[in-house]
């Protein structure tokens, strides 16, 4: 267990704002949003042999260890990530962290 974690959340386009809000309410100081596209396993659907990927947003939030669990679970609950198809959340253990505002 390191001192800091990065929480990565992948949700459908338009939900990033909500994720950031929940994270903020639970003590996270900031985050970064990356527009991206996702392709699932059986979701491959095509139009004229061209794949149509769905639009997603990847959100990166760095939190100190004592906050990670709270933020992660709050987001999990608020966006109902346990419900199928709503998104995905993972945490990475960080070694060096600079610039995180406390």
């Amino acid at each position: 267990m390191n001192a800091f974690q990065a929480i990565l959340i992948i949700v459908g386009r338009g939900s990033a704002d909500r994720v950031m809000q929940i994270a903020h309410e639970n003590g996270a100081k900031g985050g970064t949003i990356v527009p991206c596209r996702g392709t699932g396993h059986h979701d491959s659907h095509e139009l004229l042999y061209t794949a149509l990927d769905s639009e997603r947003e990847l959100i990166v939030i760095v939190t100190p260890g004592d906050l990670t669990k709270q933020v992660a679970y709050a987001i999990n609950e608020a966006l109902a990530l346990d419900e199928p198809g709503n998104g995905l959340l993972m945490t990475l253990e960080l070694d060096e962290v600079k610039g995180l505002l406390m």
């Binding site: 059986h42 992660a72 999990n76 990530l81 198809g85 995905l88 959340l89 993972m90 945490t91």
Partner: peptide
């Protein structure tokens, strides 16, 4: 590859 410590919401992932 990066090691992942925790994952939530994997229900939608269907691994072959």
């Amino acid at each position: 590859s990066l090691p992942v410590s925790h994952v939530l919401g994997t229900k939608k992932l269907s691994f072959d």
